[in-house]
C-alpha cells in the first residue's frame, strides 16, 4: 500500500520507519472519543510535543497533511523523486527584493521537515550567552548556559541531531582531533 494513496497509520498500528513493510503498535482513538490534546502538524515541534505529552500519560492525537513514509522502501536516491517530501503549496515572495526560495524549505509528511533536514544543530558556546558583557556585542541571555546544557542533550536525542559524542565546548569539553589517514 502506497503512503501517498491512503493513510497508513490506522487500525492501531503505524509504519515502522526502520523496516520495509514493518509496523509498530500505535494508540488510536475513535472519532468521538475526547482526547487531552490534538496537535496539527507532526514535525520537529508537533511530533516531539505529542511524544512528550503521551509519555507523560496524556491522550494525544497528532494530525499531519502528509504521508507516513517508510524511507527504506519509499525513497529512491534521486533528487527530483524526493521532491515528494516537500510542502509545495504556493507561498508568495514579495517586497522590493523578493527572495528566491528553494522548494525544499519545508516538509509535508509525518516528521515534517525533519524527514529531510540535515541533522546539524550546533549548541551555543558558553560565552555567547553573555555576548554583551563578555564579547561586547548583541545582548546577554537571561539565563546561564549551564541551565541549557541538558535541554540541548534532550532535544538532540529527540530530533536525532548528529554530532560529536563529547561536545567540543561547554561542559565536559574535549578537543577534537581529526585524524588524517592516507
Amino acid at each position: 500500500m502506497s503512503a501517498e494513496s491512503s493513510p497508513r497509520a490506522i487500525n492501531g498500528r503505524a509504519p515502522d520507519v526502520f523496516r520495509p513493510s514493518g509496523w509498530v503498535a500505535m494508540r488510536e482513538y475513535s472519532e468521538d472519543e475526547p482526547v487531552d490534546f490534538a496537535i496539527v502538524g507532526s514535525g520537529a515541534g508537533g511530533g516531539t510535543l505529542a511524544c512528550k505529552l503521551a509519555e507523560h500519560g496524556f491522550s494525544v492525537v497528532a494530525l499531519d497533511a502528509g504521508p507516513y513514509w517508510r524511507p527504506l522502501e519509499d525513497f529512491a536516491s534521486d533528487e527530483m523523486h524526493q521532491s515528494k517530501l516537500y510542502w509545495t503549496d504556493e507561498r508568495i515572495v514579495d517586497g522590493e527584493n523578493p527572495l528566491q526560495l528553494g522548494s525544499n524549505n519545508s516538509g509535508k509528511s509525518v516528521g515534517g521537515s525533519t524527514v529531510h533536514f540535515a541533522m546539524v544543530s550546533l549548541r551555543f558556546r558558553p560565552e555567547w550567552f553573555k555576548s554583551l558583557s563578555v564579547l561586547g556585542y548583541g545582548a546577554d541571555w537571561p539565563l546561564d548556559w549551564r541551565e541549557m546544557w541538558h535541554y540541548y542533550a534532550e532535544v538532540e536525542q529527540a530530533l536525532k541531531v548528529s554530532g560529536p559524542v563529547n561536545y567540543p565546548w561547554g561542559r565536559n569539553a574535549r578537543a577534537i582531533r581529526i585524524a588524517r589517514t592516507n
Binding site: S83, Y86, T88, E90, R91, V93, P98, G102, S103, N105
Partner: peptide, 9 residues
C-alpha cells in the same frame, strides 16, 4: 506541482 513559492510579480 509548483515549487513551493512564487515571485509576486
Amino acid at each position: 506541482k509548483g515549487d513551493g513559492y512564487r515571485d509576486a510579480r
